[in-house]
Amino acid sequence: MLWNRGHKLMKIVRYDLAIDYPILRSSCHLLKDNRKYCDIRNSLEDRTEYLGTRSHHGRVKLYNKMIESNLDYPLTRLELTIDADLNCYDEIKRIFPTVYVIDDLQLCFDTEKLTGTDKVLFFSCLDNMDYLSMLSRKKKEKIVKMMSTYFTTFQFNEQQYNVITNELLNYYSMLN
Rank of each mutant, 00 (worst) to 15 (best):
R5D: 15
R5T: 14
G6H: 10
G6N: 07
G6P: 03
H7W: 12
K11Q: 13
I12G: 02
R14E: 00
R14G: 01
I19V: 01
P22I: 01
S27E: 08
S27W: 07
D33W: 09
N34Q: 13
N34V: 14
N34A: 12
K36E: 14
D39P: 03
D39M: 03
L51M: 08
S55C: 12
H56W: 00
H57P: 05
R59D: 04
R59K: 05
K61H: 02
Y63W: 11
N64W: 01
I67V: 15
L71S: 10
P74I: 07
P74W: 03
T76R: 02
L78H: 05
I82M: 00
L105Y: 11
Q106M: 14
Q106V: 09
L107Q: 00
C108D: 15
K113I: 09
G116D: 13
F122N: 02
S124H: 06
S124Y: 05
L126E: 02
L126I: 02
L126V: 08
R137W: 09
K138D: 07
K138R: 11
K138Q: 09
K142D: 11
I143L: 11
V144Q: 04
K145N: 13
F151N: 12
T152Y: 06
T152C: 13
Q155I: 10
V163Q: 04
T165M: 08
Y172E: 08
M174G: 10
N176D: 12
N176A: 04
